[in-house]
């Protein structure tokens, strides 16, 4: 799950994980560069570098729900684990740390960081498939949702091969990158993009799809987030935009409902309606652009009070209804 900053990609990733965790399926939700966003969203203690069960899935119509596990991946831990796993570098790993190599590799060496982060996701996917392999806690996952870096960086992040090209042309780290790429380019992966119906995010989404495609990475769908309520429709929306709403009907209905009505209240409501209608028109124009992208689209409402756990389940239900999970 990727998306421009401010579009709510982490929220959508969490909602998708909950939605997928229906009908007894187990889902792993990973974050790779967050500030413990998952922990904050699900209101649990900060996550360690270890898979943790954090929530029960959305109960499906047919039977019991699965669980959502979470994993916070940081490059340092991934590197040390990688060294221990593949090279049995217990002592040498420490020596590397002492000479500042771990720090170097994870913060400065170009591309290495991303190889490590994606490599860990790959490991999780692998342990989910094969029974009895090394995954901690032995959890088996039916799906992995990755809260990935933003749209502007997603292709570079997933395309670890290219990032290493010219640097490591051979050797184990290159081989590791190749293996990871094979999974990312396979039909088992889908890169979803989160956007809001505003010009820049929509433009960036369209650019992002182009970049993913030219890197042979499988594009999933576009999730349109924070969509305004649509209580006003059709002719009424047009009338609101032209400031031609029927003030008498409004006044009458308000009075019948026991509201103290004066001109300023009706002025206020019609002004809000006009403002809303203008934004809806802009949203519609952007929606057309999204639909022209020729990928499946899903829409999630803006929740006025902010997204809490209840809100996450609501969003998950909306994604499931629309067939995303």
């Amino acid at each position: 799950m990727t998306g421009k900053g401010g579009t709510g990609k982490s929220t959508v990733a969490a909602a998708l994980a909950l939605a997928l965790a229906s009908r007894g399926r187990n889902v792993l939700l990973c974050e790779v560069e967050g500030r413990q966003g998952i922990a904050k969203m699900f209101d649990v203690d900060p996550l360690p570098y270890e898979e943790r069960r954090i929530a029960a899935g959305l109960p499906g119509p047919a039977g019991r729900a699965g669980a959502v596990f979470a994993l916070h991946i940081d490059a340092e831990s991934a590197l040390l684990e990688y060294l221990a796993m593949y090279y049995r570098l217990g002592r040498a790993g420490k020596a590397l740390d002492r000479f500042g190599v771990i720090d170097f590799a994870t913060t400065i060496a170009p591309g290495v960081r991303d190889v490590l982060l994606t490599g860990k996701v790959y490991e999780a996917a692998r342990s989910g498939r094969k029974k009895g392999t090394s995954s901690k806690g032995g959890a088996q996952y039916d799906a992995i949702v990755l809260d990935a870096p933003p749209t502007g960086r997603i292709t570079q992040f997933l395309n670890v091969n290219d990032e290493l090209a010219g640097l490591a042309k051979a050797g184990p780290i290159k081989k590791q990158a190749d293996t990871v790429m094979t999974l990312f380019r396979s039909p088992r992966t889908a890169v979803h993009l989160v956007t809001v119906l505003e010009e820049m995010p929509v433009q960036e989404t369209s650019d992002g799809i182009g970049q993913l495609r030219s890197a042979d990475l499988p594009v999933g769908g576009v999730v349109v987030n924070l969509v305004r309520p649509r209580d006003l429709t059709g002719d009424l929306l047009d009338a609101a935009r032209r400031d031609e709403l029927d003030r008498e009907t409004i006044t009458g209905q308000l009075k019948d409902a026991g509201v103290e009505v004066d001109d300023s209240l009706v002025d206020g409501l019609t002004a809000e309606a006009r403002d809303h209608a203008e934004r809806r028109a802009l949203e519609d124009a952007q929606r057309e652009l999204v639909q022209a992208m020729d990928v499946p689209t899903y829409e999630l409402p803006r929740i006025a009070g902010g997204v809490d756990m209840g809100g996450l389940y609501d969003l998950a239900a909306a994604l499931r209804e629309q067939g995303m999970a």
Binding site: D231, L232, D246, I250, D256
Partner: peptide, 23 residues
């Protein structure tokens, strides 16, 4: 109560009030 102009059900005013609350 289903008040108001039957032409405009579910009601312009309801929509305006909901938008107002949302905002």
């Amino acid at each position: 109560t289903g008040a108001g102009d039957p032409e405009q059900t579910p009601g312009l005013t309801v929509a305006l009030l909901r938008l107002h609350a949302d905002r």
